[in-house]
């Protein structure tokens, strides 16, 4: 397992390096580049700006600047927000919890529903349920998440009045029940696309496993079909889903951004949008890099989990 993980880790580090280069390039594309902060609030003279540029080392060759920028990033110095002067990492950190809560809830919901639908579709292949699930998944994958959010608010908040139309909690309440109440709708919205993805992959994985020789062996032992399914097929079919889970980070983050916007959920996605509208480039850049890092970490975690779960890698 160790060589496998070391190789994966090496690949992730390499990828992170390329990611950081892209990030650096975008940073320098911004109007005024790293100087934007000073250029925008411009009650400074050109001389002042030049002096600051020199102080910031912006007159030096780009590779040197990149190396230094990367070094600062690695050291946790991601710059300060234009808006409130707080360190970028601190700003991101204070919004991360809400996003993670939303993403985690939606993921659990999607895994539960998606696996169930996928398994049922696989064992009742070509049944009416299977067709409806397949077509339903395709439609779900085509629905803009934010619009589904609007429809959800319309149905459950405006028409039925069951769920709050936004925010993480009622001001002044903040009880656990109140928070859960607020969580339902956005989690459901974010889970839609994920459920579709999980059901499709689960179905395919299950179909794959069901046709394997060892399933026939299990039947030949005299195991009832249901036990063949639970004891032999399920674990094998779930294994590749670990990889699928690892690949969900970009979809989840993108979905969270719009879901948070629709439901005024105080997470990283909304912070990103707010920062864009305030031209708060350090935070925008920070979140961009942070989300890419989350994607990479998600992949790496999935690889590690897979290595632990699959005896062929664990012991191989």
């Amino acid at each position: 397992m160790a060589p496998y993980l070391i190789r994966r880790f090496g690949q992730a580090v390499l990828l992170l390096l390329v990611v950081s280069m892209i990030g650096f390039a975008i940073l320098h594309l911004a109007p005024g580049g790293p100087m934007a902060q000073y250029a925008i609030g411009s009650n400074m003279s050109q001389e002042d700006l030049d002096r600051i540029a020199q102080q910031l080392g912006l007159d030096r060759p780009l590779p040197v600047q990149y190396a230094e920028w990367l070094w600062r990033m690695l050291g946790g110095d991601w710059g300060t927000s234009f808006r409130d002067g707080q360190p970028v990492l601190h700003v991101i950190g204070s919004h991360l919890g809400a996003t993670l809560q939303l993403m985690l809830t939606a993921t659990l919901l999607a895994i539960f529903l998606g696996c169930w639908i996928g398994i049922l579709g696989a064992i009742r292949r070509y049944s009416v349920f299977d067709y409806l699930a397949t077509i339903g998944a395709m439609v779900a994958l085509s629905i803009p998440t934010f619009w589904f959010g609007l429809v959800t608010i319309f149905v459950f908040s405006v028409e039925l009045g069951w769920l709050p139309a936004g925010n993480r909690e009622t001001v002044g309440d903040g009880s656990l029940l109140d928070m859960l109440h607020h969580l339902i709708a956005p989690a459901m919205v974010l889970a839609l696309v994920e459920t579709a993805i999980w059901s499709r992959f689960m179905r395919s994985s299950m179909l794959d496993v069901v046709n394997q020789d060892y399933i026939r062996t299990a039947r030949a032992k005299g195991l009832p079909r249901f036990k063949v399914l639970t004891r032999h097929a399920l674990r094998n079919a779930l294994l590749p889903m670990i990889t699928v889970a690892g690949l969900q980070m970009p979809t989840l983050l993108g979905g969270a951004l719009v879901t948070e916007t629709v439901f005024t959920w105080p997470g990283m996605g909304r912070l990103f949008l707010d920062s864009i509208s305030y031209r708060d480039y350090p935070v925008v850049m920070g979140i961009l890099m942070f989300s890419a890092a989350m994607v990479l970490i998600g992949n790496l975690l999935a690889d590690m989990l897979y290595a632990v779960a699959d005896p062929r890698i664990r012991l191989g």
Binding site: D213, A220, R235
Partner: peptide
């Protein structure tokens, strides 16, 4: 079928061609 399950593996058993794929890899 339930009675047949009691027969399979008990009265009549089977060994398959592919030892590589006929055993559950995760058990």
């Amino acid at each position: 079928e339930p009675q047949m399950q009691a027969v399979r593996g008990n009265n009549i058993a089977m060994v398959f061609q592919e030892p590589m794929t006929s055993l559950n890899p995760v058990k």
